[in-house]
Design a protein around this nucleic acid. Sequence first.
DNA 1: CCGGCATGATAGTATTACTTTTGTCTTTGC
DNA 2: GCAAAGACAAAAGTAATACTATCATGCCGG
Lengths: 224, 224
Amino acid sequence: MQQLNGKVSISICRSLYLKDPESSALGQKILTGSIDLIDRIGLEQYTFRKLAVHVGTTEASVYRYFENKHKLLLYLVMWYWGWMDYRLAFLLANVPSAEERLRRAVRLLTETVKEDSDFSHINEVKLHRIVVAESLKAYLTRAIDQDNRQGAFAYYKQLVDRVSAVVNELNPDFSYPQMLISTIIEGGHLQHFFSDHIPRVTNVREGEDSVVCFFTNLAFKALS
Amino acid sequence: MQQLNGKVSISICRSLYLKDPESSALGQKILTGSIDLIDRIGLEQYTFRKLAVHVGTTEASVYRYFENKHKLLLYLVMWYWGWMDYRLAFLLANVPSAEERLRRAVRLLTETVKEDSDFSHINEVKLHRIVVAESLKAYLTRAIDQDNRQGAFAYYKQLVDRVSAVVNELNPDFSYPQMLISTIIEGGHLQHFFSDHIPRVTNVREGEDSVVCFFTNLAFKALS
DNA sequence: CCGGCATGATAGTATTACTTTTGTCTTTGC
DNA sequence: GCAAAGACAAAAGTAATACTATCATGCCGG
């Protein structure tokens, strides 16, 4: 992560791209176009051919940036976690109370992203929806061990560790800090998804704050 | 679910198959062969062509039973939930203590299936691994609303409700019983997966009982 | 102004996902 | 015991997907 002319650029694991998409106008169009398209039609319908038409380039040019759509998805998801980790670092800075820091972290991890931060050419609202609906497909693959060895999940691990450290501060005897945090992260995504599509397995009542409430309570009770 | 010559047959939502695979020898070979193959090579690599070769039939014959691999996966996953719900019903029967019932339920939902119950031609150990690694791909699709409308998730909902009822009994004031149970179910799967592939975001120590312990504690603390 | 790199244009291959047709064999109904 | 119906194998075919390769062009830095 580097500060660059007032904007923050999130640097992604080299193994996830062939040519850095941040390094050219076409690369950036591939990123924004992919986010648009995956958000609109879903990962299974999304193809590099459709993307090429959408951004006005050719399939071959897209393949110069990314090996395949799995790597591109992983790139987007890891950008998201890099961005979240960055936001989290600011959100927790200079807050003395560990309890307040945990409260803020759980909120950030489980609430819906509502505004595009105009932080980059990436639309964070759409990207958040993609992460909720598609990110597990990027993990649950036979390629995961190789991706992991190549460092693809670095930001995800870093974020989990950052929040786990707060958990540890609050209750050093708690044996499962990472487990609690990764459960909250992925559970939060699933509960949002379920509330939209299989509401009978959730209890979302007034707005989606139910998810934040549930996981905040869960976190504090788990540590009590 | 019906009792048939000493065995239990789990009846699956009609919309998930074109022709009942339980109704013929070929259909059953398609089920067992699919479980073998998906477990061995993963859902992305699995194709109806490979399956046909594996069970000694033709692609066209497979398509007489299932529309596509998404439906077949959903069939297998729902068979699993039907089977789990059946086991759960027995496990909770005649246990007076709600606390003990919850403890048993959480254990059943979060532990690894270790033995093939010889209950049918379906290998439950392999099927459990498939559910852990692939079931979310069956949910997280654009087709979910249609699948749900057609009743594909009936057993899943029924199981969540069965355990939620125990939660309600233990603490009628708790506002999120379904949310807690579906989080435990899917969280349990993910923690098993993470412990195998991204251990840094878990805290699995001696054996996989850590997952059971974590979620059991979590459930009881959430209700305290 | 030259050389190199990024892209566009085009074409081509292999695999996947699915459909269609036809012939044989088995089952079931009578 | 025979005819009709259904189940399956065999084979071929189509459309889309997931890539790869070739070549020409245009731009940018030296």
